[in-house]
Design a protein around this nucleic acid. Structure first.
Lengths: 332, 332
DNA sequence: TGACATACTGAAACCGTTTCCAGAGCCGAT
DNA sequence: ATCGGCTCTGGAAACGGTTTCAGTATGTCA
């Protein structure tokens, strides 16, 4: 089951077997055939660990995401993986579930694997970790995490603009009493979004916003809505941190006999496929996940090919998508 | 950045460093402290490839799934990963997108990685591959794939029973004109489900069933519905191969002004979370994905711990779940 | 016929760990 | 003082590949 056995059977040296395996350098056709036959007969599968160790190079990227269950992350993963495959790379993923400890151990694991590049599409991230990654010399791409620095590409979305577009629209429809449904992540984009909502609301007269948070799932959206409505006062519009939670919100409202959008308007964020398929279809903000995926993949590939050490940052401006879950505030 | 450097700095041998790293055998407290300090200072991360190579054991499981995007697969993955983690194992996933070629290369990759165990939750699977896996000596768990044999655990769901429960119910409501929406996978459970629908329908008098297939996505469900309705004749009930596609079906029907369940009944399969959150909530069949996940994890863990070589097969009987997407056939 | 480039192939060093086997101290008992 | 038995540590051989460097045919050309 190892090179030597194959070599012996084909009556060549391990060097030659290695050569045909990597079709590097020239091997006489007859020899190659003998080797291939031996490989076939012995059902030989090269040991990737040995390969990586000897070769020093890794041909696989690591990818760390906050919540693969949310199509937002999954879509990015999918396009990165596809691009990587086309370039002959593998991708191994890790899920943090928004937990910082998970992030730490995932990053350690990736460094241990000596991945050829690492994409971190997470909202939780400590400077110490970034430092650690930097020392490791692994090319890194961050999505939405603070520090652009050497050997690190940073891709971010202008959430603030997205939120502002939503609030502008809601305000124009007469909504003054807002609810915000977020998830439990402590750092990064969520807070940016939450803060953006609060900041934006503060710019309009007579506009109040109450917030609730729960897990980043359908159920989380539902539970957050319950919390929001538990106080007795019902907002005329509920702004959600993303589409998944918004669908949970829709469900809870429907169950309570609250009509959307006649009684309450609901907005999502991300524009995942599901936002068109739920009922009513969600008014939301489009985040170009495929484009982000391509950017991530390009950055990874570029960094590994040449030793480009350009610290790059790119910002994406999201687009408002009007659908059926929003309408005039009651009595307006 | 390798053991030797750490050893040198701590003025010990690499053997000792290795010992503290794995806290195997006894190391004097003062020595251990010196080593740990050196590791810390050098920001040393052990090379997993070298470790696996030298140690011979792999501490990671492989998992291959047909479509991670579908929560059915994702839920299984999630619980396997969680169980594995608790036992100190990693999991690396691969997605086949129902493509046989992908399956082949993924399996090869896993063998190359010398994973400690492999779970294949896929519907496409050739005997030759199973053979190849068998030769590799890797403990394998299959979900829904034919051959129970040595070193292979097989977990399956009695789809036929599930489908029968659905058809019984629909028949009792007066439905005689059925549509079946499936996805493109050629082998295994889909066909089993499709055949089950056809067989079951054949047992009722005056009952006809037309089928359409598309991708296993929300869009796929929508497109399949269009195909189904393109003929002009509309079935009174549409049975779907799974919940995801059913949600796509709901969307298309709503768009055409066809009411569910008044005009057409719709059923799903799997009972993913989304099936309660869509509107109307789906009548479906529950497949215990968590339980399956635990079974998979247990099998993997058991096989690696002791050299249990029991070929095991277990069959799961699914349960009917009544919700709001089904009703009496029009005029009944 | 001899010199020399060319096309293949093999021996051996190395990649970064783990692990086996001995050896070095040290202590208490004889 | 000698000895047996601990405790701790180091040397060196794997693990399964890649890669460099040198060597052996073989063919070409003067």
């Amino acid at each position: 089951m190892n090179l030597e056995q194959v070599a012996r059977r084909a009556k060549v040296s391990t060097a030659t077997v290695s050569r045909v395996l990597n079709n590097a350098s020239v091997v006489k056709t007859s020899t190659r055939a003998r080797v291939l036959k031996a490989i076939e007969e012995l059902k030989y599968h090269p040991n990737l660990h040995a390969r990586n160790l000897a070769g020093g190079k890794s041909r696989t990227f690591g990818m760390i995401l906050s919540n693969l269950e949310n199509p937002f992350f999954f879509d990015i993963y999918k396009t990165v993986e596809s691009d990587a495959h086309n370039a002959g790379y593998e991708v191994v993923v890790a899920n943090t579930d928004y937990r910082a400890e998970q992030l730490v151990s995932s990053i350690r694991l990736m460094i241990g694997r000596r991945v050829a590049g690492l994409a971190a599409i997470v909202s939780e991230m400590e400077p110490a970790l970034i430092e650690e990654l930097n020392e490791s010399g692994i090319p890194v791409v961050f999505y939405d995490v603070g520090a652009p620095r050497q050997n690190v590409t940073n891709i971010r979305v202008n959430y603030r603009r997205g939120i502002e577009k939503i609030l502008d629209y809601l305000y124009s429809l007469g909504h003054r009493n807002l609810g915000f449904v977020g998830h439990h992540a402590m750092l990064g984009p969520l807070n940016e979004r939450a803060r953006a909502v609060i900041d934006a609301a503060a710019r309009y007269p007579d506009t109040a916003v109450r917030t609730a948070a729960d897990a980043d799932t359908l159920d989380g959206g539902r539970l957050a809505t319950r919390a929001l409505l538990a106080t007795g006062e019902t907002p005329t519009a509920i702004v959600c941190v993303n589409d998944v939670m918004a669908v949970g919100v829709l469900r809870e409202l429907r169950e309570r006999g609250i009509r959307v959008p006649q009684d309450v308007s609901v907005t999502g964020f991300d524009n995942i496929k599901l936002s068109e398929f739920c009922h009513p279809a969600l008014t939301t903000v489009h985040i170009p996940r495929e484009r982000i995926g391509h950017l991530v993949a390009d950055a990874l590939l570029a960094k590994t090919d040449k030793a480009t050490v350009a610290e790059h940052e790119m910002v994406i401006d999201p687009e408002f998508v009007l659908r059926d879950s929003t309408g005039r505030a009651p009595g307006h």
